[in-house]
Design a protein around this nucleic acid. Structure first.
Lengths: 223, 223
DNA sequence: CCCCGAACTAATGTATACGTTAATAGATAC
DNA sequence: GTATCTATTAACGTATACATTAGTTCGGGG
């Protein structure tokens, strides 16, 4: 039988810290001593510190000597930067996915995600919509075939997810988003790389303007 | 007077490991025990390990239990991926730099870098050319004003630099590159965002094809 | 000669120890 | 009351200790 697979503490610390941050248990701007986090995760400071260093190199938090690790808040400006990166890299992924002429069967996940989004919209289930949206974007970069793009996009998406927890229920109904996704899916299916790029690019730019606008309107300058 | 600024060992380990990798002292594909590296950097395993974990999360190396840290080789495919990321993000930076309507004085560094490249080409000094090229690209993303783009581009450029050590002296004279840079500089100066984007994009795509072609031709599938 | 298994070695992953020093509180002078 | 100096504390950065376990070696059986 397979080994009960020992999970390294450092990896678990990474995952659990991420989860604590995204769940809001460690809110943006809050400080936490290494010792506290270690006790919370039931391990010594060493793996906690290693995980914190990695997360800090990825921009999720910051190590402030004697003050503890600070969960970095995300400003409207940060969100604009992040969306700009996502716009460029995902557009590339869409273009490459279309060029790749994937067999119909390889588009099953993307198709399902698109349908789930449409169903969620009909049912006015925003949490389900958000999950399907995540699925779509993750699968898109996967189909794009560039592992580095996928990795960077995943990191940036982590941060977007934090802000979305705030904006998801105050934003207008995302009907345009669904149309855009459908358009990207069709373009990929048709092998029309330039259309895929163009539609996805516009899609992300609109999302950026909408989210940044919401954050600024509602004076949510730090989430 | 200013404090003699104590440099944390972890940060020094990061910088020195980077330097050792880029200088070729730690060649692609080689393995190195944590203990050896610690002795080499004259510190304990702890900061070396912390630095190695960060570098591994950035894709420069890999921690293989019991085998030591492995310096990751870069294949032609990797190089294609990296250049594709650089193409998208730097094109955005060029566009934004042009939109920003920077005052003439703010373009001094970019102008100097362009001139240095032209001088280096005339003198056939490829090392000087490579340095000026680095300066140009770094300043470009800086002028683009997106810190995340700058950070990602810096990480990817690190990897390109490794491959360039091999290709720099076998590639054709980079006269087209210089013309491209001049074109981007002029477009930024004129505030022509679309031209800046278009020229830079084509520039990076040509560089990608040239470098990837060289790696494949010369059977340098892993550098 | 080759294959298998047990003892051994050594590198890692993690915990713990420790010196340094920023932050804080307390006391004293004004 | 305020400001400054001093003493104390405690969090971090780093070093060290240690248990675990993947490789390796060596010997014996086939």
């Amino acid at each position: 039988m397979t080994t009960p697979k020992a999970i390294p503490h450092t990896q678990r610390a990474l995952e659990e810290l991420r989860a604590l941050i995204f769940s809001g248990a460690l809110p943006p701007g809050s400080d936490h001593l290494e010792t506290e986090l270690a006790a919370r995760l039931d391990m010594s400071r060493t793996p906690v510190r290693e995980a914190a260093l990695i997360l800090s190199s990825q921009g999720l938090l910051e190590l402030r000597p004697r003050k503890g690790v600070r969960i970095l808040p995300i400003s409207a400006t940060d969100m604009r930067e992040i969306y700009d990166v996502l716009t460029e890299l995902e557009s590339l992924a869409a273009e490459r996915a279309a060029e790749a002429q994937h067999p119909h069967s390889a588009l099953a996940t993307l198709t399902t995600a698109t349908e789930d989004m449409e169903n969620a919209l009909t049912a006015d289930d925003r949490l389900a919509w958000a999950k399907a949206d995540d699925d779509f974007h993750r699968e898109l970069v996967h189909l794009g075939g560039n592992a580095r793009v996928a990795h960077i996009v995943a990191m940036m998406s982590d941060q977007v997810r934090r802000a979305r927890a705030v904006t998801l229920f105050i934003r207008p109904t995302p009907s345009q988003s669904n149309a855009d996704h459908r358009g990207v899916l069709n373009a990929i299916r048709d092998g029309d790389a330039q259309a895929a790029r163009r539609i996805h690019r516009a899609h992300r730019q609109q999302a950026r303007d909408m989210i940044v606008g919401l954050l600024e309107q509602h004076h949510l300058h730090m989430v």
